[in-house]
Design a protein around this nucleic acid. Structure first.
Lengths: 203, 203
DNA sequence: GGCTTCACCGACCGGCTGGTCGGTCGGTAC
DNA sequence: GTACCGACCGACCAGCCGGTCGGTGAAGCC
């Protein structure tokens, strides 16, 4: 029985790994269950033995990934220092994600609207826990300490996430490179605004 | 012959209108060609008489819509005043779009990655012309006038678009309402940054 | 050593959907 | 009035894809 469970866990892991790679590359509708099964070295019957539907495979894969992201980012939030330092650490971790990892976060943001009911709710919660809520915790501290002007911390956090999202776009990478420049850029823009953005940054 | 052309134009218009409503509500894969034809009061045969594929219907509809948006926003760019005033006018026009209109812009951003080749290129260009390039024109003037710190105008424009995108999210609307508050909020955040964001804005 | 359990197999199904094609009909040219 | 053209029709097709189901073999149980 123990061996059976372990075997299942391994197979499920293989299915989720295969699903992640395929969905990240081509999106939900373009990937077939046959492909997932083949990539996971299982037949379709085997896949449906562990999951009741294609959608559940997708959701399970996203939830697992978001939980991993949450743990990764949590380290930055827990670290001490000023609001700016902590945000820099969190954002640095985000910007350092390899392409296929950040693709997962894009998938969630894009596809949440297609799901309904419990699946949707769980996805939204997992995403919020992984990213916006952690930014919000830092922003809230920043406001309490007077480092940031008082305001609605959640809205400010979402604005920050919006800015960071731009920095993972093709153009920003091409213009500022993969390194620290994007981090500097987004932090200055967020804290001091476009009026004060010093010359020389971003070209 | 002239009557024939006119008749075609009317039918094509009906098809594009029907496609817009359906795609905006449910997204590309969830809409069938039968539905589009039915909503346009044409048979599927008639639809395929005017368009070679479902994708072409979608792309044609998006291109038409983006061109309309470009014209709409162009008025704000052409207006005179400070950089901030012009950005306010452009953003105001954007935020005032009804739900189904702004849905089109979301569709483009979401689905561009699925297309390839010429269709993709044309979509990207049309989107850039409709929104980011117009912001960029204003930003560029602002930098030249010293209203904004010098920098890479395109990158700054995209950052601005990123911020505005947050403001059309559900949470921002719920928190700040449909009115001018969101406009004020995003402009202050963009120009002066989160440090200077005055108390009382956004709760 | 029979019996159950369970992971997994793989052929199969059914319906959905993008796309086709032969045909109709009203208008236009001459 | 006849030949033609192009818009449009609607029945049909083919293949894809999510999901099913009867079966198999290995591991544990008694």
């Amino acid at each position: 029985m123990a061996e059976s469970d372990e075997r299942s866990a391994i197979t499920i892991g293989r299915i989720l790994d295969a699903a992640r790679a395929l969905f990240a590359a081509r999106g939900y509708p373009e990937v077939t269950t046959d492909e997932i099964a083949r990539a996971a070295r299982v037949t379709k019957g085997g896949l449906y033995h562990h999951f009741p539907s294609k959608q559940r495979v997708y959701v399970a894969m996203l939830l697992a990934d978001l939980e991993a992201k949450r743990r990764l980012f949590a380290a930055a939030v827990a670290s001490h220092g000023t609001c700016r330092e902590r945000l820099a650490r969190l954002t640095g971790a985000f910007l350092a994600l390899p392409e296929d990892e950040s693709a997962m976060l894009r998938l969630v943001r894009r596809d949440v609207n297609f799901f309904q009911g419990e699946d949707r709710t769980r996805l939204v919660r997992a995403y919020q826990r992984a990213l916006p809520e952690q930014v919000e915790a830092i922003v809230r501290d920043g406001m309490a300490e007077g480092e940031l002007a008082p305001g609605n911390p959640r809205l400010v956090s979402w604005a920050f996430v919006g800015l960071v999202q731009v920095m993972i776009g093709d153009y920003a990478v091409r213009e500022l490179g993969e390194g620290e420049a994007r981090l500097e850029y987004v932090l200055r823009l967020f804290f001091e605004g476009a009026v004060a953005l010093p010359a020389g940054v971003g070209r």
